[in-house]
Design a protein around this nucleic acid. Sequence first.
DNA 1: GGGGATTGGTGGTCAAGACCAACAAATAGG
DNA 2: CCTATTTGTTGGTCTTGACCACCAATCCCC
Lengths: 398, 398
Amino acid sequence: MSADSGTVEGVRQRNLSRLLRLVHRSGPLSRASLTEATGLNRSTIAGLVMELVTAGLVEERAPESSRRVGRPSPIVAAHPAVVAIAANPEVDAIEIAAVGLDQRLHARVRLPQSSVITPLRTAELIAEQITRWRSAELATADIVGIGLAVPGLVRAVDGLVREAPHLGWIDEPVRDLVAQATGMVTSVGNDASLGALAEHLYGAAVGIDDVVYLNGGASGIGGGLIVHGTPVGGVGGYAGEFGQNRPGIAASADQRAPDGVLEDEVSRGRLLEAVGLGQADDAELAEALDRATATAARDEVERQRRILATALSNAVNVLNPAVVVLGGFLAILAERDLPGLEAAVRAQSMPACGEDLRIVPAALAEDRLLIGAAEVVFTDLITNRLTDRLSSGLVLQG
Amino acid sequence: MSADSGTVEGVRQRNLSRLLRLVHRSGPLSRASLTEATGLNRSTIAGLVMELVTAGLVEERAPESSRRVGRPSPIVAAHPAVVAIAANPEVDAIEIAAVGLDQRLHARVRLPQSSVITPLRTAELIAEQITRWRSAELATADIVGIGLAVPGLVRAVDGLVREAPHLGWIDEPVRDLVAQATGMVTSVGNDASLGALAEHLYGAAVGIDDVVYLNGGASGIGGGLIVHGTPVGGVGGYAGEFGQNRPGIAASADQRAPDGVLEDEVSRGRLLEAVGLGQADDAELAEALDRATATAARDEVERQRRILATALSNAVNVLNPAVVVLGGFLAILAERDLPGLEAAVRAQSMPACGEDLRIVPAALAEDRLLIGAAEVVFTDLITNRLTDRLSSGLVLQG
DNA sequence: GGGGATTGGTGGTCAAGACCAACAAATAGG
DNA sequence: CCTATTTGTTGGTCTTGACCACCAATCCCC
């Protein structure tokens, strides 16, 4: 409301946002490159940067030796003290991290839990961890908000966790609980959607505006969409649930679960079973699959790849993405023969849709969920909460 | 380039666009309601409206008797002379219309063709029709561009028709051909995507930001997506090809085409066959289905509805739309028991995704394709080409 | 070490656009 | 006919950014 988009003051807001977004996403940039990227005047850039510096959001550093003619341009970087707290509650543990506006991971802990974590306990643990960090790693930090990645359906409007089967949560007002416990602005999102966001911004799909992301975890298959460069939520914010789709299965012999959904057929559990493992992490699973000589194991891999290919084709036909990013055990399945999978998907898609398509494994490690959760906080800060940070520079008038 | 988004001049551009978009989409509005809708100052609105009036894009009319206290506010309406030409080439005919910025259909013809129309012939026919109209219905009209709705895959960047199986077109530079023949700005889009756009703006999904649209025609099933209130194209612009998806079919007895795609199973042809008709339009088909007593016909309807429900569920899980709009024979299938179809879709979707979902038949008649095609022209005009229309009002300074 | 090139800093001017306040116009209702 | 209310109209103000000129800083290359 205060930053009317139609008014002249709004221009400055937008330009400040553009600048901050640039240095946040692209990393440290010289002032010269900022003028080039934005098309604004040198003096304008100088003023905008100064405002961001005084707001404590950005830092200017001595220029690097650029190996170029001319006066070196100072480097503008995100202020290292600005951080967001990201958290990811799981069945057996909760992971909490402090992610910097400069894309650095300032701190990170994994707090194992003896029993399944509750929403209230989640809020408590986050609050405790923040106070602990505040007197140590984050003593000088400027915490701008909290982002949660929850393995379940999250209603976008109010951060209510509708259902997190893995955690046993139903209709839990997680956002409000955490906000109350910490007194900080909090946002909650679906873990897979946040993974998609992270891969889009910093991972395997950087610069790609149309992305389909599927992640294979122990509990099933989740996913997220990027359309026009922005994450897709749908009305409720529940979009991306590829795992619940009913896949077309060409050969009926390939079907294991009658009337089952994708994650019943393409599952980590079935892969573990096929190689005779009880529990294993992704690396162990990949290795076991590499070693496996039994035809049963290989057949299971091929079966799952066939079904996955059809499921991906359906998504490709509808969304025509430039890139499909696969994470978790789906990446393992894919990487056993990436061109083969691409070919299989192309064969079942509209030819034109297949042309521009690339299938790639996820590039970010497990902290992609935390990065994505933090990113939501930063996006909110940059686009909506900038005005509040820009303290009164109006004294000059007197 | 000229209208930098970060500069002050861009503000006026955006405000002019907002105003014009409002009167175009919402119809005639009083100046008072424009100030309320935009939050801009009265005097600002006056200036903006005047600029649009002098540009010939908008008209001011005497105020209506508002039955309210106070000075009556003049009505701002889209200028009735501003029109876009919309065309829709089909197998046996080409349909051409002149759609007004005021949402009126100024003129419309259907030109039957003895043989399948070629791209070149399409361009010629459009050009001829325009010259014909120019000396009659559109004598005083201000034609701002041409929009084509093509039943096939259209590459977004250059308007190349990659493949229109129905017309036998492959890699035809339709946009350039039409632009050359007419000398006018031309845009080309997939017919179903344009139908989705029309339903979103003026039809069954007005005000809904997340829409899935499926249209059942004689040649198959096409579709379009609206996400965040804007049409989704994907990288190439081929998004929305639901018909090529491989549906999950729960009961193998329901399968007719082995390894077939959705439009092989759910098809107008199979319905006609089931009721023993050779050719029929949608009304006749609906009536025949109503009359049909043979269990074979009813079974076929139920079979197609089952498969359609699964296909819709898949889309609902991934996109979490607020509304699914069904057109063509899919509307006939759906309307035989709309709550039943909704229930079937809900049963196969994530519960949360199903909650906010409504399934509705398309509200616009067959001209929805033409409306959508014209809309693309208007959107381009409003967002990109406004600058060119605003002729030099700089004389006042002297 | 000097010349050329690029960029930052400062100070000032200029144009553009939106806002604001006061006034005029037009209407309903008494 | 008069008043209250709403809205158009007008002229002035404020903020913002562009542009310019000049100087200083720093680097590459000769």
